[in-house]
Amino acid sequence: MQEKLMRPRKTMITGLLVITAIGIGSALWLQKDKPNLKLQADFPLMGLLKTSAEAFTQVEAPWQFSFPRDHSAHPHYQTESWYFTGSLDSKQGKRFGFQLSFFRVGLKPPKTAHRPSLWDTREVYRGHFSLTDINQSHFQVSERFSRSALKLSGSSLYPPKIWLENWYFQALEGENSNSFHLQATAHNMRIDLTLHNLKPPFLSGQDPAKQRSTFYAYQLPRLRAQGKVQINQNTYPVEGLAWLDHAWGAIPIPTGPVVWDRFLLQLEDGRDLLGFRLRRRDGSGVPINSGFLIDQNGKIQILDRDNFTIEVLNYWQSPSSKINYPSRWQLRVPDQGLDLSLIPYVNNQELNLTLRYWGGIVKATGKDYGETVEGQGYIELIGYDP
């Protein structure tokens, strides 16, 4: 029944998936380099909404971030995304990667009068949940949509919480205002995790006028994860690291024949790397590399084409879509002495959802000024589906 109710909005939802698949970090970079962009408010799919983006609050004044309040929804802005990824290990020797994402689209501003219907809604939520069982080389993914009517999906401010049916995350009370409880169940897989922040938030949109920003965003690049993973009837106590990015406002969308890759890497020495690579699908032109290197204390170094290189060394063809995706990379940050080789733990981590793309957990190994360095992370490959 929900699928039938949501079908008129499906094309609009596809646009939202494109927005969010870019990820906050990519959007931060796109604002600076502007390859070929349309703002979300001008995106043709938004014409399906009864209310234009201008009816929602626009990003103009500096944002005063406040946690845990800002972990919840910002319904006066039309679109919003929350994106968790992580790597988990069990004492039994099992290793997993997970993604849990929530996307919100405002159909009409919060003060709009309700229609006399229990199904009347101001918002639509979409989410996806994936789990990679590295030991078994097995990848599963689930996607769902729901309107916020009848509390099928939605948000609360106290405590900050986002839910989509029985998937949810909730900010925890206590001294660490950037801690969370995550839970999701689909098919034969389930995660139940507690996340505690280990670094200061990476903020964007504090001064939109100076940054030419059309959205507010923050990232928590290093969260300590503990909890349980269940596959079939087997339950595994796990611990590891996770990453959260959260954005709201009008996020720029790359258009045209381009592909973009996003790298979220967590190194064992405590550093985190957020990298992007944008290029033309036909291989012409020079790829644009950019990103951020975050040290153990949260200090940020901006990476650009002059001090950051990404080289594709191999490709993998999806047996279902026949798309060729990069499957091995060499990342270098010369002025930091960093030289990393990235390889997927499992090649087939293609998400055949409303938007098809590759997104999966990878292993990082290499050198830091000649010393061995290792880590793990997530890579997303968007736009390879012609």
Rank of each mutant, 00 (worst) to 15 (best):
L198C: 10
S177V: 11
K210W: 00
Q206M: 11
L203I: 14
L203F: 12
Q183S: 14
T214H: 12
R212D: 13
D207Y: 01
Q183I: 00
E175W: 00
A225Q: 03
K228H: 12
P201T: 07
Q211R: 09
R190M: 12
F215H: 14
L195G: 05
I231D: 01
H196V: 14
A225G: 05
F215Y: 13
H196Y: 09
L193F: 10
G240H: 06
L182G: 05
T235K: 07
S177K: 14
L182V: 04
N188C: 08
N234V: 13
E173I: 05
N232D: 15
R224V: 02
N197C: 12
S204E: 06
Y218C: 07
N232M: 09
H181V: 02
G205D: 04
P201K: 03
G227I: 06
Q206K: 12
Y218P: 09
I231C: 03
G174T: 03
I191V: 13
Q206F: 00
G240S: 07
P201G: 04
V238S: 02
K228C: 05
N234Q: 15
N197Y: 01
Q211N: 10
L193W: 07
V229W: 06
G240K: 06
P221L: 07
F215W: 02
W243Y: 15
N178A: 11
P201A: 14
E175R: 12
T214Y: 01
N176Q: 11
T185D: 08
T235I: 14
L223P: 05
A184G: 04
N178F: 00
D192N: 15
L203S: 07
T235W: 01
Q219W: 00
F180S: 07
Q219L: 11
D207F: 01
P237T: 07
R190T: 10
P221V: 15
N178Q: 14
Y236A: 08
S179D: 05
A184E: 05
L195E: 05
V229G: 09
A225N: 05
L195N: 04
T194H: 10
V238D: 02
Y218G: 09
D207M: 04
L203Y: 10
Q183F: 14
D207G: 00
V229H: 04
Q230I: 10
Q211G: 00
N178Y: 00
P221T: 15
Q226W: 00
G240D: 06
I231L: 13
S213T: 12
P201N: 04
